[in-house]
Nucleic acid binder design. Structure first.
Lengths: 214, 214, 214, 214
DNA sequence: GATGAATGAGTGTTCATTCAT
DNA sequence: AATGAATGAACACTCATTCAT
């Protein structure tokens, strides 16, 4: 009775309380400053809870970080299905995938930032488990997609499907990381237009850049 | 006469002294653990100098970090010319570039790790100045290369040169970041063969992945 | 029940705990060695608390110092009333004031030492706020006292009341500061007799030193 | 030949060099911040010399401080004679002394600040030796002056000459210390007029504040 | 006479963590 | 579930000092 209902807090940006408030703030902090750069004091302050309360809920900084990681995972995984890839031809599927994937990354900046940082770390403890879990989803979807395209005779059979997948994902990751810097390059016109970027990307992936020689 | 010969230090990884010793250790530590993860105590211990000496030479942790960044920059920039790209056709130049660029990244893992981490940070102070300086070198080389290919009629004129550059660099960056994870993907066969990766990469960039329809 | 009785701590100099223990030690240290001469390590050790605990309670060295200053203020202010000045004639009131004021200073050596040091500093931030608060109390009491004496025709009307106040307070301050040195002056006989000092002081203030010429 | 003549540097405020430059800066710093508040790094920087050079000339911080103290002493002692006290009557001599003494203090703020700080310290090592040396000069002059006045029947014989001396010096010391604070007291009109202060001071000392009763 | 490099002990401060309540 | 007090270890940084040149 004395306890307030906290059920609907997840919807919208209503100020969560207790455990959830901590988690929400921690996600931001870890994403922005990395594991070592983030501090429990700051997280506690911003979440308007006592520092000791963090330990009550998460046991340790490491524990909190893992909870953040897990939360980000759950937040990321279902997204792939948010706008289902469905098109008759493989080339069209790839175009859609390129578009949707980049959109998702930009919608989940915190999660992506954290994962990429994890990739750069040397621990390899969490790196394998987590990054693999997130990457593999997208990766095997793509590979499967390409394989079907090859079986349908649409994609060249001498193409390594994994290679294609890496190129698409890599282009998106690089865009995500360097978009701030791109804005200061005069040769770049797509810095603020992810849609155009995705289109041009899939175009080159499909047709290559060589002029047709006849 | 009274001065000790330190000549051979430059050659191998012989223990440098004073300022250089600190810088060398700091480069490793910052690359491995990031700015916040690295500690001056550890750096001092490993460099076999007094902690206070770091401040004598670099003023502050920030100062040391900037010196490291600057040093990595100078170490990275001239690399582009280390194995000069020279081939009659543009497609061959791109193939060479893909190869050399990835090799360079793998040879300078510390520098690259640091730069990528910097890209993920929010400072934008160092990000712009440094990442721009390093990225732009490779970037504009590539763009120029593609432009010439277009003028020679070798590359499709409707291709955005910057787009091609981003795809190539992005694929390399992504390979660099995720290679550890790749090793655990069964679909991936190039994880430990950067040479093959570069070849397949440029192949797709040039010809695309679509089957020829005639 | 489970809570320990701490009641008697206030009475004597029993070892206070936590915040109060720190404050008590800090007051001594700052008074004895000044702001820069005092160190938090020493304060923590003597207060038998962890150094970090000081920051938990006071935020910073500056914060602790200000708390000390504030505490000394409250300790000093009510003293004026401790032995209320009450006498029919103004001359008697002045005699009493001279006596009581010097006694108070000698009873609160720590506070006085700190205040005088603060007067010699250049901050002017704390100087104004604090010294003013403490000085003004005594100062305006004296001025008011003299004014009433003038209205009653007891004190010469051409006397500046503020001047008289400064002379009385100044003589006490100087005695406080130099009493150690006075002991080695053969001409001085009042060094260890503050009572005599106060008496002689008010005598001269009232009657002057000139021989009566008639 | 290669060495510049440094002889006349002492005159005027020409930028001294080496030892003298250090001493000049150290005097300011010690006076302003006290022994613990002043740092050799700052002194070295401001004197535009190497920190190690300070040790070359003065051996240690303590050594430098003592040199400063000695220098201030020499600077202060002869001042009493700068404007010789000479008047037929004792009362006039006292008036002159009050005036000259306060002037001297205000002209030598650094020295005075340092000495007063020393008086507040607990070392009593230097306190006795130095403060005594400086104080005693003024003190015994005054006492002697008063004694002669008493012998000449000008000063009341029941006055303790030391007491009169302490009151005069104390009033000046207090003015020196609190003059910044005085400016914010509405009752005080002499804060920026040391001349008036000295006059009023000697007036009260001589004649007292009581109204003439007949 | 003067400097730059180097140092050990110490500074104030912050860290993640624990505990009693 | 939540808090304030407390802690030890570590943090970046400054101190006065030394030494070879």
């Amino acid at each position: 009775m004395t306890k307030r209902l906290t059920g609907r807090d997840t919807e919208a940006s209503a100020p969560a309380q207790g455990r959830e408030a901590i988690l929400a703030v921690a996600k931001k902090q870890f994403a922005e400053y990395g594991y070592h750069g983030a501090t429990l004091s700051k997280i506690a302050t911003r979440a308007k809870v006592c520092k000791a309360n963090i330990f009550h809920h998460f046991g340790s900084k490491e524990g909190l970080y893992l909870a953040v990681l897990k939360d980000y995972c759950e937040q990321l995984s279902p997204l792939r299905g948010s706008r289902p890839i469905s098109a008759p031809t493989c080339r069209e599927q790839l175009r859609q995938f390129a578009q949707v994937h980049l959109e998702n990354m930009l919608n989940e900046q915190g999660a992506v930032q954290l994962f990429l940082r994890e990739l750069l770390a040397k621990d390899s403890l969490r790196k394998e488990i987590l990054a693999k879990g997130v990457l593999e989803d997208n990766f095997s979807s793509l590979v499967q997609m390409v394989r079907e395209g090859q079986e349908a005779g649409e994609i060249r059979p001498d193409i390594d499907p994994a290679m294609l997948a890496v190129m698409l994902l890599g282009a998106d990751v690089f865009f995500f990381m360097a978009r701030d810097v791109f804005q200061h390059f005069r040769d770049v016109h797509f810095a603020e237009a992810p849609g155009d970027y995705s289109k041009a990307l899939s175009e080159i992936l499909l047709k290559g850049c060589l002029a047709k020689r006849d």
